[in-house]
Amino acid sequence: MKNRRSQIQKQVERTLGCFETAERLEPDPWFASRVRSRIAGREPVSPSFRWSLTTNGPITSALLALMLVANLVSVVVLSQQRNRQGASPKDDVSSLALAYGYAARETSYYLSTD
C-alpha cells in the first residue's frame, strides 16, 4: 500500500516536472511580415501622409507645372470660344463669299438658309 502511494507520488512529481520540457512552437518566419501586411492593408491613408505627398519637393513642382499648363490651356480655349461667339453670322458669310470671289447677297442667302 505504501509502495503504491509512493509510486503514484513519484509519477505525479515526474509529470509536474514536464512544464520545462513541454513542447514549444517556433513561430513561422513570415509571421511578422504577415501581421505587417494585414495592418498596411487595412490602414487608411492619414491626412498628414496625404499632406506630406503634396509638400514633397519634386511632386510639388510637377503639380504646380501641371496646374499652370491646365490654366493656360483653359484660357486659350475660352478666348477662342468667345471669339467665335462674338463674330456674327453675317461676318462669317461675307468672309466666306469674299474668299470664293462672290459679293455677299445677304437677303437671298438668309432666305435660302432658313
Binding site: 514549444r24 517556433e26 509571421f31 511578422a32 505587417r36
Partner: peptide, 14 residues
C-alpha cells in the same frame, strides 16, 4: 511595429 512583433511573437504565440 514589426520590431515589436518580432520581439514578442515567440512568447506570445506559445
Amino acid at each position: 511595429f514589426e520590431q515589436l512583433v518580432e520581439e514578442h511573437q515567440d512568447k506570445l504565440i506559445n
